[in-house]
Design a binder for these strands. Structure first.
Length: 561
RNA sequence: GCACCGUUAGCUAAGCUGGAUAUAGCGUCGGUCUACGGAACCGAAGGCCAGGAGUUCGAAUCUCUUACGGUGCACCA
């Protein structure tokens, strides 16, 4: 039921369109005032009457009955109360019919969205700073799929650059096979860190040579590189599995090695390439931006060159309707430049490229620094959260059967949720205190709420109850819960439009709070027949909506915890 | 210096296209209490929405400006 339209269609104001009335319908701050409100101040000028009088008049004319049960005029506002009973019936039917598809839609049918996220660097372990892009991208991937889009997840590997020459050089000097095999990616990273701290000028020179060797296809250099890549990918895939993250493509920077020349040629043809200080650039001064560097003075390509090639490749390969780059805001300028260059190249689809920028993660004592060893590994955070979850379960529910499995869902959920609960643009200061807090506005709270709901439903089944129908006039806490649940489809849509999974996280907490209120206020199993059936339906609907929300975020929902 | 972003309760944050008394969680204080799961619920204290100006009937929300903080600004990615 579209109440706004319903109301707008039944209000007549001279010289004001229905659409305008519909747009102006707001939600009162307190639901005891009403479910919808029309502020009448705007119409005062046209009608040459006071808002109070207008509201009063409109109230008299409004046909009460049907979907709107009550209309009142208060201080220039026209307040509407909807028929809660029919709203309840409608919402419950919808949720219980659509189940795990509740909130989904077909609006993206036939459309493709590419999502570039996580984009790990070869030879570097995951630290807490990589969490946002991974988990944001993963959530957006699911959200777009849920809305009917074809989603293409791309892990744009950081596998190109002189750093790999350095790495190979460090390995040749200080490393050996056994150590790396034993220590895995951390051992590789240690070599890289050591290089940065101890390398002599001679070694720096050597490193550049090794990089050149990789590029020219030297067998030994490439074998080493591939080995490091393998190590990295098998390491990150374990973490991706835990976080419920997957990709359709691992085409990283190296993949574009042979795809950059055509771009450079095209830039030349279109007379966009200029020589400046020995380098080749695209001048963006007209657009109030520094130039976009395409080729270094030694002829080597740059980050931007590869991103241009990648964008074109993606358009050709996937024919996307939208291509998202889930990358921290440090790279705002870089993407602005790349998008502008594509636009100048005449790619009309440049408008479909979106930099989904998010804030940085720092530690309580300042920025992270791999070199100083001031870094928090993601794996460690996940492990600690899972351990903590296990301890709490042991304490609160020692008889639980699959403790480890549940602890995994709870612990990982807390990590994911922590990264998705706030607006993505905000910087985050990581602290274990916060990460390990399982109370209040957390995924654990939502999961707990789900377990509670499920427990009631299980008991109802055990008692032999069924609840295919049953409707009563909802009380306040029931009505609040229903309204919250009803907002889920719009929430999913808004989350996609704004690239903000946090909307869904906020929905989950809000709906869980309303469920808990309902749960405390209303007896479910001990209620009368009709009430019980209604409340069981409501409980099941809440469980469905909450489960769908957490699932979209990549968070598991244990049956018991 | 220029550009972009941020600034809301002690702390961490919501607040979508301007609307009625600014909303939560954590923390603090005080309750519920023996249950359909207390990882819960209720209440209290706590705010010149960074400062100023403007637009408007109406501004946390839009515009300008100042301050503070963050990020970026030529051959790293």
């Amino acid at each position: 039921m579209d109440y706004r339209r319903y109301i707008a269609e039944r209000i007549l104001i001279d010289g004001v369109k229905k659409e305008e009335i519909e747009e102006n319908l707001a939600v009162p701050p307190d639901s005891s005032m009403g479910d919808y409100a029309l502020p009448c101040f705007k119409f005062a000028k046209v009608l040459r009457k006071s808002p109070v009088a207008i509201a009063e008049e409109l109230k008299e004319k409004f046909p009460v009955g049907g979907e709107i049960k009550e209309v009142s005029a208060v201080n220039g506002y026209l307040n509407f109360k909807v028929d809660k009973r029919s709203l309840a019936e409608e919402v419950l039917n919808q949720i219980l019919t659509e189940k795990e598809r509740y909130g989904a839609s077909e609006e993206g049918k036939g459309k493709t969205v590419c999502i570039d996220y996580s984009s790990v660097n070869i030879a570097k372990p995951f630290h807490i700073g990589h969490l946002s892009t991974t988990v944001l991208g993963g959530a957006l991937y699911r959200i777009f799929q849920f809305l009917g889009y074809r989603a293409v997840g791309i892990n744009h590997l950081g596998d190109y650059g002189t750093q790999f020459g350095k790495l190979i050089c460090a390995y040749k000097h200080w490393g050996n096979k056994e150590e790396v095999e034993k220590g895995g990616i951390h051992a590789v990273n240690d070599l890289y860190v050591r290089f940065n701290n101890e390398a002599t000028e001679e070694m720096e020179k050597e490193a550049r040579e090794y990089f050149r060797l990789i590029e020219s296809g030297d067998q030994e250099a490439n074998a080493l590189f591939e080995w490091f890549k393998e190590l990295t990918l098998s390491y990150v895939k374990k973490i991706y599995d835990k976080l419920h993250i997957s990709f359709d493509s691992y085409a990283g920077e190296r993949f574009y090695t042979d795809k950059m020349q055509p771009v450079i040629d095209e830039l030349n043809e279109k007379k966009l390439l200029k020589e400046s200080e020995g380098a080749k650039i695209v001048d963006l001064e007209k657009f109030n931006m520094p130039p976009c560097l395409i080729l270094r003075s030694d002829g080597a390509s740059l980050y931007a060159t590869r991103d241009l090639a990648a964008a074109i490749y993606r358009k050709n390969t996937y024919d996307f309707d939208k291509c998202l780059y889930v990358v921290a805001y440090q790279q705002n300028l870089h993407f602005k430049q790349v998008f502008k260059v594509l636009e100048l190249m005449g790619k009309e689809w440049a408008k479909d490229l979106v930099h989904v920028a998010y804030g940085m993660v720092s530690l309580e004592d300042g920025a992270m620094s791999t070199r100083k060893g001031k870094v928090v590994w993601l794996e460690e955070v996940i492990n600690k959260c899972v351990e903590k979850a296990y301890t709490v379960i042991d304490e609160k529910n020692p008889a639980l059967e699959n403790k480890a499995e549940v602890a995994e869902k709870v612990g990982v959920g807390a990590v994911v949720f922590g990264a998705l609960y706030n607006n993505k643009i905000k910087d985050i200061v990581f602290s274990y205190d916060k990460a390990l807090n399982f109370e209040g506005e957390t995924s654990v709270y939502v999961q707990y709420t789900c377990a509670r709901a499920r427990s009631v439903l299980d008991k109802a089944i055990a008692e032999g109850y069924s609840w295919n129908d049953g409707i009563i006039e909802p009380c306040a806490s029931e009505a609040e819960l229903i309204k919250a649940l009803a907002s889920f489809p719009a929430t999913v849509k808004a989350a996609a439009e704004n690239y903000e999974p946090s909307y869904i996280a906020r929905f989950a907490v809000d709906a869980a709070q309303k469920f808990n209120k309902f749960y405390i206020d209303c007896k479910i199993l001990q209620a009368g027949d009709e009430e019980r059936k209604f409340r069981l339906r409501l409980t099941q609907a809440a469980l469905i909506a909450l489960t769908n929300a957490l699932t979209l975020l990549g968070i598991g929902v244990p049956d018991k915890m």
